[in-house]
Amino acid sequence: MLAYTVRRLLWTPVLLVAVSLFVFVLGEYGPGDPVEVALGQNYTEERAERLREQRGLNDPVPVRYFRYIGNALKGDFGDSFVFRGRSVAGLLGPKLWVSARLFFAGFAISVGIGVPLGFFAATRQGTWVDPTIVAITLVLLAMPVFIFAPALILLFALNLSWLPVSGWGGFWDTRIILPAVTIGMPGIAVMTRMMRASTLDVLGQDYVRTARAKGLGEFTVRRRHVARNALIPVLTILGFSIAGMLGGALIVELIYGIPGVARFALDSIFSRDFPVITALALIGATALVVANLVVDILYAVVDPRITYR
């Protein structure tokens, strides 16, 4: 277990270097020379040269790459090409914080609703409740987010006037509700299905039968033996479900007007703001890698049956 953890930890930086290299190279071969774009019709070889020199774009790729990584380790991701004079870290910081809170809210909704719902469905297997819940989750899962989001706005903000349409006011603000639900919706479906499957699995296990045979109350059995064990496999997909929320986050930030990082990422890609793109890819990958690492280790801790070679 310890060896495995250490190995994973050592491997993580290598992974990140590979990721950054990949993004860096893609940027090199992408279309649109930022210098040409910046100069527009005032382009002359001379001016372009001067600007390249200023921005250090003339050095060989490996030199630039290592310089970049060196700075990145110090938290300096360079300056944005588009927002002149602004550091990437300064630009991304507040947006990451906004998106992180939004993600967390969406995630809490997924887990908070999905897990109990899945457990409930499993314990009602054989009745109409179970297939109904399964059907609802499937229906929601197939709904494209770019329709789901405006539908929520129309219903809850315009027709019912219960909630505001857009904006961001922090975690404890009514404006977070609709976007969080939109982001969390696919997660609810996934969690429900996972929890249901895993609960059914556990219900058939010997130790549950044993517990019942011991004469433990049904409530105790379910809470102590079934729910707890059923949660374990659900853990594994937490990491993935975070990654899966990104696509939703993009649309959500666009439609709800939230100053988050996903929309900014799209803007940056279109405007070829490579310092921002590289930083985002690095940060995103780091977050994902760390999340998976934590989940893996957690998994190993809660379920001793799992061994890693």
Partner: peptide, 11 residues
Amino acid sequence: AGGIAMAMYET
């Protein structure tokens, strides 16, 4: 930050 202009106006 963007958003749906008409809806924002209405609210």
